[in-house]
Nucleic acid binder design. Structure first.
Lengths: 242, 242
DNA sequence: GTGAATGGTTCTCGGTCCAGACCTTGATCG
DNA sequence: CGATCAAGGTCTGGACCGAGAACCATTCAC
């Protein structure tokens, strides 16, 4: 009966939104955000609120601001936020697993729903995202193709609540993959996405769900290596799909 | 790139919080909320913000306010909100199924996690909630015991994100069960809860997940009858657990 | 050097929120 | 019957936030 309730300031909401978009890879290191006046209008907020949000992101090392005619708000290489994220995951041991478990809950069922409701038109973006991963050059394109796949699949499932929750949960993980050597995750991700797509396209809900679970358990292993530096406890993953 | 971002007023947040608590059955028809000054302090907001929230709830027919020494804010019989909810679900056909599908995603995995992590101490509240349903007299007690079970199970799963999401999704459904004849849902719910509890206590994640799915599909059937008045399309439920 | 595009700053108006004081209502008890 | 008390109802002053608009400062291309 005693939980605290609070509202969010607009600047905070904008900062969260932008941070999530950076985490998800919608905008990548080196890229420039739209000009303040323009972005404020796009988001439907006053410029001063957007500026306060940018100030927060700058303090956390997500963006750098330059003035002048080629100026603007540029996304950094994200070294500092990535390291801060890693430190936080190390400090609060269970949190990373909780996020992954949450994603498993959402995305296995998302894959199953997409398989049951699959339509050619709904699956087209999913297929494109799978193909895009083949031609990927560089981390930026990799992260964007990866994100596109999961979001497209959520949309194909046709459930707005699931789609929003998937996007939100994905925003809590992100960038530290850039700290990994590059070849392996791409190949593994490519293989997993392919398998999920095929199961969904075949209308096999159980297989789609199982493939998604396997994919996310693979993500968990990767993140464990990144965060903790060694592959400990990687065998407790072997329980059968529910 | 063009999504709108917005903040919430504190009064709106408080109203949503209280409405959800009523939906979930934490406070039942006829019960009195704490005095305004007291409740405002509990929630950590100014009295004027709480009053604005109560004004909203009063307009929607959730509460009645009486003055004097036995006065206070009383929860109504909820006839009007229940009817409004039903009308909304009829108008937006897919929404009810989306909410149920969302709950299935969250709660099947919650049950599986609880089964894998089961500890005697964590399961005690779940067991109590199952037993409470045996002794239930009246709708109020039924709804509270039902709610207690799901929340206790989410807590036993030990994942805060899942727990919050489960509570939030449950807040979107609720009360219309009171419009049903009373005996059947109790017996069905009792049987389902018992099955879920036994699977969790046995550490059988797959069985717990399947039992939860069956329970929620049963809920879907009940709600279909309540909202649409007939049992249509009740057979498309028969696909096997994933 | 000039122009254009950008971020930086300041002002005003209205809305939100808080804290506190005070008023009104209605049940109850001496 | 009247006093009391616990509850909701109302008002005020001040702090802060958000929207909108105008203007300042910096940088770069030409």
């Amino acid at each position: 009966m005693a939980r605290q309730v609070s509202s969010t300031t607009l600047a905070q909401a904008v900062a969260d939104h932008l941070r999530m978009r950076i985490h998800r890879g919608d905008v990548s290191p080196g890229e420039r955000l739209p000009a303040e006046r323009e972005l404020a209008e796009q988001l439907g907020v006053a410029r001063i609120s957007l500026r306060e949000a940018i100030r927060q992101l700058r303090e956390d090392g997500y963006v750098e601001v330059r003035r002048g005619s080629t100026g603007g708000t540029y996304v950094t290489e994200l070294h500092r936020p990535a390291e801060a994220w890693r430190a936080r995951m190390r400090a609060q041991a269970g949190e990373m697993d909780d996020i992954i478990d949450f994603r498993i809950a959402l995305e296995t069922e998302t894959a199953a729903l997409a398989a049951r409701r699959h339509t050619a038109v709904g699956l087209a973006p999913v297929r494109e995202a799978v193909l895009a991963l083949h031609d990927v050059i560089g981390r930026t394109a990799f992260r964007q193709a990866d994100s596109r796949f999961h979001v497209a699949l959520a949309r194909a499932a046709g459930n707005e609540r699931l789609e929003e929750a998937v996007e939100s949960a994905r925003g809590e993980l992100f960038s530290p993959r850039d700290l990994l050597p590059f070849r392996e995750p791409v190949e593994e991700t490519l293989r997993d996405h392919q398998a999920i797509y095929e199961a969904v396209a075949a209308g096999d809900a159980a297989a789609a769900s199982a493939a998604m679970r396997a994919h996310l358990e693979g993500t968990r292993r990767q993140l464990r290596i990144i965060v903790f530096g060694a592959e400990d406890g990687a065998d407790e993953v072997a329980w059968s799909p529910v």
